[in-house]
């Protein structure tokens, strides 16, 4: 369900860009961070086979994130306003690299990159949420995208509990980062459920 929600979020995002011929309201910085997240995490495509499902999803996430970046940077460039997308990504990249160096399952390059990608994914939404807060409002379709994206990691949580009791395995890095990631959406979810799903416009209180 988490993976399908993640997949759905990307489909909704592409649908929003296509139908409105615009990437207004979407943070380029957040989208660029996702490209970095997928590239650093899915390097193991080249040597670690899990399943056709796993491989297909990895390829889709890399390809679609690069494609969204292309749409924003070239095809719909005039519709993107960098003056409101001002979050400093350096504040995220540095700490995530440090977290990757401290918390990893083996002190080697690919494992550090994997851990870095987990931490970076947890906070990659911040430029987008920062932008949302600056503008104070969003199109309904953009909020559906964010809701699906936020629900994705939240839906992994029951799976981790299941695997703890069922398979007796736990991945503390993924669990802690996943809880942080979900936590960052709580404010958004509150407004989404109390306004957008009640048919009102997404507007933040002044």
């Amino acid at each position: 369900a988490g993976d399908i929600s993640h997949l759905a979020s990307i489909v909704i995002l592409l649908h929003k860009i296509y139908t409105s011929h615009s990437c207004r309201g979407i943070s380029f910085k957040t989208q660029a961070l996702y490209v970095l997240v997928f590239l650093t995490r899915y390097l193991d495509l080249f040597w670690h086979w899990v399943s056709l499902y796993n491989t297909a999803m990895k390829v889709f996430f890399i390809a679609s994130s690069v494609y969204v970046l292309y749409l924003m940077k070239y095809k719909y460039r005039p519709t993107h306003d960098p003056s409101i997308d001002t979050f400093k990504v350096e504040y995220l990249l540095g700490p995530c690299l440090i977290l990757g160096l401290i918390f990893n399952y083996e002190f080697k390059f690919t494992e550090i990159l994997w851990s870095f990608s987990i931490w970076l994914e947890a906070v990659a939404i911040l430029p987008q949420l920062f932008m949302l807060q600056r503008t104070g409002e969003a199109e309904a379709i953009t909020t559906h995208y964010l809701a699906a994206l936020g629900a994705y990691r939240a839906l992994y949580i029951p799976n981790w509990i299941w695997r703890y009791f069922g398979d007796n395995v736990v991945d503390p890095i993924a669990v802690v980062a996943g809880l942080v990631q979900t936590g960052l959406y709580l404010d958004f979810f509150y407004v989404y459920f109390t306004k957008v799903l009640q048919g009102q416009k997404f507007e933040l209180p002044a």
């Binding site: 993976d3 999803m57 990895k58 399952y105 994997w114 395995v169 991945d171």
Partner: peptide
Amino acid sequence: EILRTEKDEL
């Protein structure tokens, strides 16, 4: 084995 180091999730 309690620590999952096998990368089988996305």
